[in-house]
Amino acid sequence: MISVQNVHRFFGDKHVLKDVSFDIKPGLMTGFVGGNGAGKTTTMRIILGVLAANDGQVLVDGTPITADQRAAFGYMPEERGLYPKMKVIDQLVYLAELHGTPAAEAKRYGLELLERLGLKGKPTDTLESLSLGNQQRAQIAAALVHRPGALILDEPFSGLDPDAVDATVQVLRDVAATGAPVLFSSHQLDVVERLCDELVLIGNGEIRAKGTRSQLLALDTSNDWELQMEADTGWVRDLGVTVIEFDGGYVRFQTFDETTANRILAEAMTRGVVTKFGRVTRTLHEIYKEMSK
């Protein structure tokens, strides 16, 4: 397990990471979500050791991460970069060799990855001759070609069409299935929500929430309730709760007491047919929007 622990980072006077802590569990896909400038990339670069933390540390199974462990990571930086004039497969082999993979093995696996990721074009094409989406596929393959023990991917899905997203996810899941921790960032919550096992939400340099999707939703306990019935709901006002919204047969009210809410339901059932009643749950999107402020 990779643990980011109480990490702080300043750029000049700007405090861009404030006591950031979270875990990336082995075998799981962890989504790292936050708006632009929230601190995702800075955090990832600190995990990779490309950037140093001003305070705090990165641990692997409880002990500070070593250079050897970092060298086993697969990394896809936010600003994409491979050699523009080099053949795609040659770059994969080069990067894999730097990680200790023999050239022949790297070539074989590199070609396999490119095919699985759906690269359109020849592996012997130069990077600059490929379309952006295909360059992105090559970039993902570059992060995977040395069979990494952990994956840190910054916005891996941006610029991919839905088919490519699915193909990529499948490849990433296979890596996770080997027991590797996988962290990927995104500012597109819908993608992350669909793909990841765990979520870490970051806003303005602070971790706002972390856990599985249902944990996050459960954490967001709302005291809003809503009632929909065929009769008028104006009477709810007189029962000692705060009405937030009212529209004939629909009312949204706030109470901190479930018994009170149930009393209202009982009252409603005596007045007509209830079509909907319950606690108001917000979507992950709404939670994210509020938290990332």
Binding site: M1, V60, D68, G100, R147
Partner: peptide
């Protein structure tokens, strides 16, 4: 060491 790639550095 739980994190390692297929081949040594």
């Amino acid at each position: 060491m739980s994190i390692q790639s297929a081949t040594p550095r």
